[in-house]
Design a binder for these strands. Sequence first.
DNA 1: TTGCTTAGTTAGACTAGCTAAGCATAGGAT
DNA 2: ATCCTATGCTTAGCTAGTCTAACTAAGCAA
Lengths: 162, 162
Amino acid sequence: MRSQPHDIAHDLSRILRDLVTLIRRATDPGLLSAPQISILSSLEHGPRRITALAGEHGVRTPTMTTHITRLEAAGTVHRGTDAADGRAVVVELTDHGRHLLATARQARIDHLAARLSHLTEDERSTIAAALPHLAKLTATPTPDPLPPAARTPQEDQENQEN
Amino acid sequence: MRSQPHDIAHDLSRILRDLVTLIRRATDPGLLSAPQISILSSLEHGPRRITALAGEHGVRTPTMTTHITRLEAAGTVHRGTDAADGRAVVVELTDHGRHLLATARQARIDHLAARLSHLTEDERSTIAAALPHLAKLTATPTPDPLPPAARTPQEDQENQEN
DNA sequence: TTGCTTAGTTAGACTAGCTAAGCATAGGAT
DNA sequence: ATCCTATGCTTAGCTAGTCTAACTAAGCAA
């Protein structure tokens, strides 16, 4: 088993692409899209500003504005104001949003779980053992190349749950 | 370590999203996009028809047509004809395409490798051990929900390399 | 007050996916 | 030989998601 960073990166790169394709194929168009699930997930633990959401999800603020606009139109989030700062928009999950999120997330997880159930117990354990290390890859070990309006350590903590 | 399919699916779902965000952040917009890298990779081992490419990449033929049109405009592929079938278009990698693919793929892999190099040798081994099993997830263990014009076993064999 | 900064939106463009519909060729049936 | 159907691809038009540029509104500081 080669464990040079380059070798792993090569394989991981390919597998990542395949897994994404897999998930995209299985996504119910009527439900929530991948970015939508992510955004609603961020809101599960409390309201957030547009800028904060954009930073967390690695997109620019105009992109987040359009996401929130659509989500608001669908009744899943609510645009509130910050009493202390008249410029800010505070986005909040509605009951309907919370419910829809649970449904969509479950569908996605179920689908992955169905695939996983075809593996042996041993193979699953091996994967389970690797997940924490894979998670470390995304824990911003190197400085973010993207938006200056990036996540704060505090936000990272709050946003542990999917 | 929980290794129930559902538990793993839950974590994997979240990690997948983060890894995708990670890669998107680091992608040079001037180079090749993710689907473009995939498509050119398919062509590395020989020419392919539009329909075959679409099947391999889980998209419809019109989508593949536009991809090929753009790639052709960029000089990375060449649209040829099949002597035996006047309807078919046979897409072939150009030298420029081959070169650009190598560059783009290297950039993507280098970026992942840099992250991986921050892990311990042990952690990398654990990930390396999991990759073959993760790859099995995408090896169409359940019938394809998407296009009837799907991949053939023969094509799957030919297309092992990223 | 004046002027800079920050938060968000709007406008316009591009990629990437889809369906529907059309054209051209292949290939079998009559 | 002709017709009919199936196949391969393209075109047209839609939606989602991303970007940059440019704008408005609000806060803050001199």
